[in-house]
Design a protein around this nucleic acid. Structure first.
Length: 457
DNA sequence: ATACCTCTAAACAAAG
DNA sequence: GCTTTGTTTAGAGGTA
């Protein structure tokens, strides 16, 4: 028997690894506890994202418009020809990464022309999303929020060209996920509909929230190491955005920062219009800044070249827990953007709504240990970032957890504000943004406190 | 070293 | 009988 089996919707086999691991009292690492405490503190200190939005916008954000926009982003990145400078290359396009690192057909340097920031992964590269996330997006993108397996295949094929030429095993994986992951449930087929054999699959509302959380965590990205290795890319240009480390760590983040202020619910379909709307707004914001977005239909890449500062995945997959994610004296890093639009350096305050949104995104993430200990379904995220949200986690597993963890698992439904934060965070996440802002807010608050004390003395 | 998570492969059964 | 769908088991590989 292999490692832990994801919890099955059906009765667990007695020999199942899931039952074995579920019965186990999970190790409660010190780091995890520290993380939990840190996150709790961060949550308190985090500024409210809603401050940046009207009530109407709040409501809009609580809808799934962000998801549709996100899927549009997938389209826009894959079809628009947008291509940011690979962090594996210097501005001149020279390879900066060791040729010996991760040589594979999937290598961005060897593969197709898609950027590592291309969330579709391109034709030769596996998308960064787990199957569970793909299925979730597919189903959520469906008008009725339910799809037969066949259409799920179709959606994935449509949005992720990689699978067009991939071995058919991925379909098996999709079915495997549908079957095993409790977040997905079969819907009794309407007899009037002739969809062929099989059932419609939908998202279990009870676990939809968890799927959103899973989705908003940046999915596992096989190139995170490579991205990290590329952090030495030399400065490019004249625009310096001083932002807290972790807020902007690659080009996608720069884009996504811009994305957040322009979130608007868009028609659920057609995809093209949503895509163009997003792209347009995004381009506007990037070109002029958030205060005065002008029309902009040009390729972002042409005017803005983004360099990376840190590995996105490394820093943020465990933003709070990781000691490396804590901010040092050089909290303010320079992100150089090649642009002739904004020649002067610009400071982005830590407590801007952008960073705040990102911080809430992070703060929503349960401690790694907590996630891990809850036994995973076949729903995925990035490697090591398991989903905290299977039924087993919410129910059966929680019974075996220490009280502290159990409470976390069984926490009551989040408020609208939490949902809104979540949606905002999801957007940021889906656009490639993950940030370690709990630390930032923590440090900000801490710094202010220290300042006050110093003044007092 | 260990536990956990995700993916993949495969076998099998049921349904169309 | 074939194909598709759904379920289950097993193991590999990666991460923390």
């Amino acid at each position: 028997m292999g490692p832990t089996m994801p919890p099955s919707k059906k009765a667990q086999s007695p020999s199942s690894g899931a039952s074995a691991s579920q019965g186990m009292s999970p190790p409660y690492r010190q780091g995890d506890a520290a993380t939990a405490a840190s996150e709790a503190e961060g949550a308190d200190l985090s500024l409210s994202v809603s401050a940046s939005f009207s009530k109407a916008e709040d409501e809009e954000l609580t809808s799934l418009s962000w998801l549709h926009e996100s899927t549009d982003l997938l389209n826009s990145f894959s079809h628009s020809g947008l291509r940011s400078v690979s962090p594996l290359q210097d501005p001149d396009g020279q390879q900066t990464r060791s040729p010996s690192s991760s040589p594979s057909l999937d290598d961005p340097l060897l593969g197709d022309a898609h950027s590592p920031y291309d969330l579709t992964g391109g034709a030769n590269r596996k998308p960064p999303y787990s199957f569970s996330c793909l299925i979730f997006m597919a189903i959520e993108d469906a008008p009725n929020k339910r799809l037969p397996v066949k259409d799920i295949y179709g959606w994935i094929l449509e949005h992720f060209p990689y699978f067009a030429n991939a071995p058919t095993g991925w379909k098996n994986s999709v079915r495997h996920n549908l079957s095993l992951n409790k977040c997905f449930k079969k819907v009794d087929k309407d007899r009037s509909q002739s969809i062929g054999k099989g059932s419609l699959w939908s998202i279990d509302p009870e676990y939809r929230h968890n799927l959103i959380q899973a989705l908003k965590k940046t999915p596992y990205h096989p190139y995170s190491t490579g991205l990290a290795a590329a952090s030495n890319s030399p400065p490019i240009a004249s625009l310096f955005l001083s932002v807290p480390r972790g807020v902007i760590q690659n080009g996608a983040r720069v884009r996504s920062q811009a994305l957040f202020p322009v979130i608007r619910p868009l028609p659920v379909s057609p995809v093209g219009s949503r895509t163009s709307a997003i792209r347009s707004s995004l381009g506007d914001y990037l070109t002029r800044g958030q205060d005065s977005p002008p029309p902009c239909g040009e390729d972002l890449q042409e005017d803005h070249t983004y360099s990376t500062a840190k590995s996105p995945s490394r820093l943020c997959s465990s933003p709070v827990a990781s000691p490396s994610s804590t901010l040092d004296d050089d909290d303010i890093i320079a992100v150089e953007i090649q642009s002739d639009v904004k020649p002067e350096p610009r400071e982005i305050p830590v407590d801007s709504h952008i960073t705040t949104a990102a911080s809430t995104c992070i703060s929503q993430q349960p401690p790694r240990g907590q996630r891990r200990n809850s036994s995973g379904a076949g729903a995925g995220t990035l490697p090591g970032s398991s989903l905290p949200w299977t039924k087993a986690r919410a129910r059966g597993i929680s019974d075996t957890l220490p009280l502290k963890k159990r409470r976390a698992v069984e926490k009551p439904p989040e408020s609208d504000d939490e949902e809104m934060k979540e949606a905002a965070g999801s957007l940021l996440h889906l656009a490639g943004v993950r940030a370690c802002l709990n630390n930032i807010t923590n440090r900000t608050a801490k710094g202010q406190k220290e300042q006050k004390e110093a003044l007092r003395n």
